[in-house]
Every structure is written in structure tokens, then in C-alpha cells.
């Protein structure tokens, strides 16, 4: 029966020791642990959220970069096309210009040649005329060695002039 009656000395020690244990642990023990664990939980949740956000941001950035890359590629193709077009145009222009120039040169050359030819012909003609005059002079000198002949000549020429005057 004594088992069922609380002993006063034991009660005293139990109140004392349990009181001290409860005081110490409820003040410095469990709240610290619970607080740290809950803080850590909050921290992990927050980290997960921010990681998710960072992941989303990264995906967005990736999309954007892909878009930029795509645009760049398009631009690249466009620029290349333009370049080739302008190249062709340049070549065409150059060709046209060159052919025009060549035509002009040929024309000039022909003109020059014609001019040269005319000059040459004129020269020949003058020389032929001079030669014929010289020859005529020599012939005339030969014929007009005598005074009579000279007089005849003068007469005749005068006649001729008169004839032509009349």
C-alpha cells in the first residue's frame, strides 16, 4: 500500500528537480532547437522559392538569348544577301562602265585613225601638187629658155586673159 502514497521527501525533490529541469529546458533548450529548425525550414523554403525564380529567370534569359541569336542569324543572312546583291550590282555597273569606256575608246581611236588618214591623204596630195608644180616649173623653164618662146608665152597668156575677159 505504501507504493500508492506519495512520499513527502520524494515530492519535494521531484518538484525541485523537475522545476529546475523544466525551467532550464523551456528557456534555453527546446525553444532554441525549435526556433533554429523552423528558421532553417523557412530558409530552405525561401531558398527553394528563389531557386525556382532563378530557374525561371534563367529560362527566360535563355529564351531571350535564343531569340537574339535567331535575330542575329536572320540579320546575318540578310546582310550576306545584301552584300552579294550589291556585289553583283557593282560588278554589273563596272562591266557596263567598262564596256562604255571601251566603246568610247574605240570610237576615239577610229576618229583618230580617220583624222590621221585624212591628214596623210592631204599630205600626199600636197606633195603630189608640189611635185607636179616642180615638174611643171622644170618643163616650163625648159620651154622658155629662148626669148621668143618667152614672148610667145606671154602673149598667149595675155590672150587667154583677154579671151577670158571678153
Amino acid at each position: 500500500m505504501s507504493l500508492l502514497l506519495p512520499d513527502s521527501g520524494l515530492l519535494f525533490w521531484m518538484f525541485l528537480s523537475f522545476g529546475i529541469v523544466a525551467f532550464i529546458l523551456a528557456k534555453f533548450g527546446f525553444p532554441v532547437i525549435i526556433k533554429m529548425v523552423e528558421d532553417r525550414k523557412a530558409f530552405i523554403d525561401e531558398s527553394l522559392l528563389s531557386a525556382q525564380k532563378a530557374y525561371d529567370d534563367l529560362a527566360k534569359v535563355k529564351d531571350e538569348s535564343l531569340l537574339i541569336l535567331d535575330n542575329a542569324r536572320k540579320e546575318h543572312v540578310k546582310i550576306l544577301n545584301e552584300a552579294s546583291q550589291s556585289k553583283e550590282m557593282l560588278i554589273k555597273d563596272a562591266k557596263e562602265k567598262a564596256s562604255l569606256e571601251a566603246a568610247k575608246l574605240i570610237e576615239d581611236a577610229r576618229k583618230q585613225i580617220l583624222m590621221e588618214k585624212d591628214d596623210a591623204i592631204r599630205d600626199i596630195r600636197r606633195q603630189v601638187a608640189e611635185l607636179s608644180v616642180d615638174i611643171a616649173e622644170k618643163v616650163l623653164r625648159g620651154q622658155l629658155e629662148k626669148k621668143t618662146e618667152q614672148m610667145d608665152m606671154i602673149n598667149r597668156l595675155l590672150d587667154e586673159i583677154n579671151v577670158s575677159k571678153s
Partner: peptide
């Protein structure tokens, strides 16, 4: 009578042990 009996001794020992363990963890 507030003697340190067997139960009281054990109680004090276990209480100290408990405080030690929990404070060590904390």
C-alpha cells in the same frame, strides 16, 4: 525527510543527464 534516496538520486542523475543532453543539442 528529504534524504537523497535511491529514487531521488536517480531522479537527480537523470535530470542532470537530460539537461546536459538537451543543452548540448541546443
Amino acid at each position: 525527510d528529504i534524504s537523497i534516496t535511491k529514487v531521488v538520486f536517480s531522479l537527480l542523475f537523470n535530470s542532470t543527464l537530460l539537461i546536459f543532453i538537451i543543452l548540448m543539442v541546443a
